[in-house]
Nucleic acid binder design. Sequence first.
DNA 1: GTTTCACTTGCAGAAGTATGCAACTCTGCA
DNA 2: TGCAGAGTTGCATACTTCTGCAAGTGAAAC
Lengths: 112, 112
Amino acid sequence: MPVPLYQAKAEFFRTLGHPVRIRVLELLAAGDKPVRELRAAIDIEAASLSQQLAVLRLAGLVTKRHDKGDVIYSLSLPAVEQLLAAAREIIQTDAKGRGGLVDDLARPAATP
Amino acid sequence: MPVPLYQAKAEFFRTLGHPVRIRVLELLAAGDKPVRELRAAIDIEAASLSQQLAVLRLAGLVTKRHDKGDVIYSLSLPAVEQLLAAAREIIQTDAKGRGGLVDDLARPAATP
DNA sequence: GTTTCACTTGCAGAAGTATGCAACTCTGCA
DNA sequence: TGCAGAGTTGCATACTTCTGCAAGTGAAAC
């Protein structure tokens, strides 16, 4: 049973609509990462992270593989990276237009 | 109080995560439209459409103006159009990869 | 001024989504 | 084989979001 494109699109965006999932995708955009490292960067319960990773996996946005005792995740659709960049631009432009509502703390692990 | 960028991004995507809102944005991408016309194209209760338009307005994605007794909506962030196009490509690629889950009925009003 | 048409808002119930805990699985190693 | 550490899943609760109806607003026509 085929799904209308606009509905598939809505579901896709809904998948992106969660802070933890966004951060996971941005971290993975910089390169494959073990769960351990994602967990450290995001500072979240292991179970919650697994939950969100499962959502991303089911949506087909990430894939996992095992390597020497830990689990490595990677982006399966590189185009997602461009999408995130586009969103960043839109939001920053918009925020400027309204007076700087948005603070760039996108990567707390990178700038502690 | 500044909002972290990743959270703003999540909210932004969540705003896009609704079939009616996607269709409204795609219709508006083709040009400004009166509510009446959106309503005809999407085939939805007037109240529901208004609700979704209000969401888009609050998110700053569309603006409205009055003109000779009806209300005209337009995209306020043209970049959104590119975002939708990017999403379309990702989804179609993904769908092909999985065996054609997605049917292109994005614009039923345009090709009856 | 009031009638009409077009759109919007408020609200309550229904449905979907997130969270945290506890239990389970899997991998590597002694 | 049995243990330890790392991830994952299931489930119950709490929360958010959606939907449809009824009432309300606002601008043009009469």
